[in-house]
Design a protein around this nucleic acid. Structure first.
Lengths: 217, 217
DNA sequence: CTAACAATCTAACGATCGTTAGAGTAAACT
DNA sequence: AGTTTACTCTAACGATCGTTAGATTGTTAG
C-alpha cells in the first residue's frame, strides 16, 4: 500500500471515531442529557432508562471519542460535555436525520403537542415578549438543569411541581413551556396539564442546545 | 415499558441510522468522493482503494440511511449525494473530529504542505484576487469533478496533466491549488511539483464541499 | 443468439458491539 | 475496621458488521 493511502486511511479512521460514538441510540440520548448540564452516572442511567453498568460502558465510549469529560467528586463521577461543539453536533446530526428520514418526521408528528406548537423561527420576538412579560416562558426540566443553563427570561417550574404551583402563573397570559428539546416530552405533558386547567399554553420544541446556550461549569 | 419511552427510543434510533452510516472510515471516504460529483461504483471503488463488492455493500448502507441516491444509466449505476445537507454534515463531523481528537490534528500537520498553506478564512479576498487575475486558482481534480462543481474563477488542470501544461500558467503569478478538501493530497502533490518548477505555489486545503458548493445534476 | 461487463445478492468468516452478571475499587458514613 | 454507595473492570453471550468469494441479474456490443 502506498504511503499517502496509509495517511488518508488514518484521517478517515479518526473521523469515524466520532461517527462510532454517534451510532448508538442510547449514546445519543446520553449526549442530549449531558447537553442540559453535568450529571453523574446514576442520574444518566435513570433518565436514559438503562442500567448503570450499561450507562457506564456507553459513557466510556463517549470519553474514548473525547466528547465528554469526567471529574470525580467524592463518591460520584460527574460527566459533562467536552464543549459546545458537541452540542452543536448533536443538533446538526439530528437535523440531517430529520431532513433525510421520513420515518423520523412521522414519529415527530405523533408527539407534536396536538395542534399547537410555537414556530421555531422567531426566537428574537419570543425573547422580547418574555422580557415584557406578555408571555410566560417556563422551563419544566429538573431545577438543576435550569441552573446549569436556561433560555432568557424563563422561570423554572419542574414538571412534577407544576400542578401545585399553578397559582404562580398569572391568568390571561400565554404560557410557553419548553424542556430538553424536540425529543423530550416533558413540555408536552406540561402543556396538556395547563390546557386542562384553562390556560392558553404552547410548547416550544427547543431547548438550550438548540439555542446554542452551553451549560455552565 | 411506558408508551413515551417507546416513542423516544424510536426517535433516537432514527438519528442513530445517520451515525451508523458515518461510523465506517470507508463510508466517510465515499461520502467525500460523492461530494465532488456523481460517480459510478467502479470509480468510487478505485478512488477509495477498495474492491467493487465492498464499495457496493457500503453504498447500500449509505442508501439505507437515505444519504445517497442512485440512478441506473445503461450498464452503470450512478451514485450521488442526496442533497447539500449531506455535504454540510460531512464538513461538520470532520470539524468536530478535528476539534476533539488530537490524533487527527497531528496527522493533519504531517500532510500540511511543508510550511505554506493558504489561511482558510479569507474566501472573499481570494475570489477577488482570482477574478482580477492576480492569483491563478487551479483545480487539480479530474476534469469531470471540475465540471460538476468548482470554486469561482478556478481553471481545471487535473494533477496528471499538470506537468505537461505548465506553459498555461503565467510567470510571476502566485498559483493556488485545491482538490477535494483537507484530506485529499492531490493539491499537495501539485504544489510540490510547481515549486520544483520555480512557481510560487500555495495549497488551499478546501474544496467545493467546504465552500458549500453543491455538484450539479 | 452469445460474450463481456457492471453491479448486486448470497453465504461465510472473523472481529467488533450491545448487553448483562459478578467481582473489584475507591470514597463516605457508622 | 466494617458497611454502604457509586462506579468501573472483566468475562461472557448472542447479534451485528466488515470483508471476501462465488453465483446471479441485467445491460450492451457483436
Amino acid at each position: 500500500m502506498s504511503d499517502s493511502r496509509r495517511i488518508k486511511d488514518l484521517l478517515y479512521e479518526q473521523v469515524a471515531r466520532i461517527g462510532k460514538a454517534a451510532c448508538s441510540p442510547k449514546r445519543l440520548e446520553l449526549i442530549e442529557l449531558l447537553c442540559q448540564g453535568e450529571k453523574n452516572v446514576e442520574t444518566l442511567a435513570r433518565e436514559a432508562a438503562i442500567s448503570m453498568k450499561l450507562a457506564s460502558a456507553h459513557l466510556r465510549e463517549l470519553r474514548a471519542a473525547h466528547l465528554v469529560d469526567t471529574e470525580k467528586q467524592g463518591k460520584n463521577v460527574i460527566y459533562r460535555i467536552a464543549n459546545r461543539a458537541v452540542a452543536d453536533f448533536w443538533v446538526a446530526i439530528r437535523s440531517l436525520a430529520e431532513d433525510r428520514l421520513v420515518e423520523l418526521r412521522l414519529a415527530l408528528e405523533q408527539i407534536a403537542c396536538n395542534p399547537k406548537e410555537l414556530a421555531p423561527q422567531d426566537r428574537a420576538s419570543l425573547v422580547k415578549l418574555a422580557k415584557k412579560g406578555d408571555v410566560i416562558v417556563i422551563d419544566v426540566r429538573p431545577a438543576n438543569e435550569y441552573e446549569a443553563a436556561h433560555l432568557p427570561f424563563a422561570r423554572s417550574i419542574p414538571l412534577d411541581e407544576l400542578k401545585s404551583r399553578l397559582a404562580e402563573l398569572p391568568d390571561g397570559k400565554t404560557v410557553v413551556a419548553y424542556c430538553r428539546g424536540p425529543y423530550c416530552l416533558m413540555a408536552c405533558d406540561a402543556v396538556n396539564l395547563l390546557r386542562q386547567q384553562g390556560f392558553d399554553a404552547l410548547r416550544l420544541p427547543e431547548g438550550v442546545a438548540e439555542w446554542g446556550i452551553a451549560p455552565v461549569r
